[in-house]
């Protein structure tokens, strides 16, 4: 064979070998085609575990709160607000009481209005919730200065 043919051929083979070696070193062992085939299952398998382990659970749920604040838990369970998770207003517990030691409570008017802004929407559960028009109902006063969110009935009025 003539030199001008096999010299570039060697260069090409060298490049291919370099790419293959680099690929085998850089691509993780668990990257490849898995169960669902090339179209949907071509991925790095270790990432599945990474997703389930690396993200911290922040919303712990009312059962977690109950362990220390059983009195508050028991009292709110007697009211229509029993369906609302503590953390929806008190913020995510994360690792409270160690971190954060104190939770920031959302006492704003807007928090109450999420459900209690009167919207006459048929075919939605919203129509069945007692609501107000905040423009008319004691404008500029915080809801919690009269209503107790842990005892929303009229007897709970301050």
């Amino acid at each position: 064979m003539k030199t001008h043919v096999y010299r570039p051929l060697i260069v090409v083979l060298f490049i291919i070998a370099f790419i293959l070696i680099a690929r085998s070193l850089l691509v993780p062992k668990d990257f490849g085609v898995h169960e669902r085939g090339y179209m949907y299952g071509w991925y790095r398998q270790g990432n599945v575990q990474e997703w389930s382990n690396s993200v911290k659970v922040k919303y712990q749920g009312a059962d977690y709160c109950k362990e220390c604040h059983s009195d508050k838990y028991e009292s709110i369970m007697m009211t229509p607000h029993a369906i609302i998770e503590c953390e929806n207003c008190h913020g995510p517990a994360v690792e409270h009481p160690s971190e954060p030691p104190k939770l920031q409570i959302d006492r704003s008017r807007d928090q109450c209005l999420r459900c209690h802004y009167s919207l006459p929407y048929p075919t939605s559960g919203r129509a069945n919730i007692r609501g107000v028009d905040p423009e008319e109902h004691n404008k500029d006063i915080e809801c919690v200065s009269c209503h107790n969110p842990h005892k929303p009935s009229l007897e709970g009025l301050k």
Partner: peptide, 9 residues
């Protein structure tokens, strides 16, 4: 969707 009231929580 019947149960959703749009509270956005």
């Amino acid at each position: 969707t019947y149960k959703c009231v749009g509270c956005g929580l």
